[in-house]
Design a protein around this nucleic acid. Sequence first.
DNA 1: AATTGTGAAATTGTTCACAGCA
DNA 2: TGCTGTGAACAATTTCACAATT
Lengths: 231, 231
Amino acid sequence: MTEGWKATDNRKISESTIHRLSHYYRTLSVLEREDYETISSRELARREKLTPAQVRKDLSFFGSFGTRGLGYPVKDLRAKIANILGIDRAWNVALIGVGNIGSAMVSYKEFVKQGFAIKLLFDNDQRKIGSNHKGIIVHDMRDLEKELKAKKIDIVMIAVPATVAQNIVDDVVRCGIRAILNFAPVKLKVADNVFYRSENMAMELEYLSFALVNLANRSGGKKLDKDSTNS
Amino acid sequence: MTEGWKATDNRKISESTIHRLSHYYRTLSVLEREDYETISSRELARREKLTPAQVRKDLSFFGSFGTRGLGYPVKDLRAKIANILGIDRAWNVALIGVGNIGSAMVSYKEFVKQGFAIKLLFDNDQRKIGSNHKGIIVHDMRDLEKELKAKKIDIVMIAVPATVAQNIVDDVVRCGIRAILNFAPVKLKVADNVFYRSENMAMELEYLSFALVNLANRSGGKKLDKDSTNS
DNA sequence: AATTGTGAAATTGTTCACAGCA
DNA sequence: TGCTGTGAACAATTTCACAATT
């Protein structure tokens, strides 16, 4: 069963720790632009709405990056997190399905900024094949394997209709791809050795819908913090 | 601090339970179309890659919907979950920012299918204002309050550049909106009484990137299950 | 015989509290 | 003194295991 990661000292690293790292990275990028030299776990926590202990614990899985009494060096910590997340290098991404969502992804600046360059587009619609999106030619699905290998693709994004998504993902895995991001609103089955994440826009709307109809049953949980998040 | 929900018996309902409900809903929709009459927690769990106990516990927060010895009635359970999630009614949604992602959302079929109808579009680009996207006119941001009220909007989706997202969300909250879905790659601050969710595409790619560079440190955790997930 | 519903147990994740260091 | 790094305490979540029910 493929799930979970371990630090060098054998502690388990949770999925939420990795997601929080992504958030720290963004905040540190802003801080660096604003010329901050150091930041304390307390201040970083305040910005992320977390506890300082959480921040320190998250970072502790990967090493000791701070200085006691001083805090963390903004620039170094940002670089270190980039390295941990693997976004200090360029990843070659292919996108399958150049429909509404697919087209939006091609133009999404944030990806490029984090080192994810969309290098290949696929569709099976004859009208789209050969056309040019932001300088990238749309290829025929029949050339999938050949093109994925030629362009040394690391990650595949799937933005096809739900009904065909499973077939597509099977093809992609067969071509040797180990990392897949799915935008189709279905849960896809992949082998244990493939990393698979899914982005489901409707699910977050459903959470909001649940929240709105359940306004009444709110648990007024107040969180105090001894480690002091308050400025 | 606004976080969490309570069942009638005062047990706390977690965010993950609500997300799993969304997944159950989708699977049950498929099962209903395939004319299944009942389903056991074991089979539902197998399809969701969860344990049967997890499925039963999740549902138990909201009532007892199953029959011992038999399982759950597919059609009723689906309807019940739709009711719990609040997607058995229509929600009026407004979208701010008709750029790449915004345009994709307007055409995204899944939203409409779940009862989320985009009724209003906003942008501050003069070239876009007045234009027509899938039959919906793009309004000037200056008419925000008037239009949100006139169209009785429940949920606002924000798809504007990161730099202006916080200003926009402040405006939206000022207009009395209580539920917001953000697509801008920033963490936005909202008051405690506003429900806020964020969709961050780059974060999932970063998770995959982390996975690829950390292939080596995988914790080979095998999970056995006494409650028997195996068919 | 099969399967739910649920307290109790196990596991995982978060926060506390303090020793250690700049 | 101020703040990190971390084991221990605590809290939340998941899984177990079994009585109850059809």
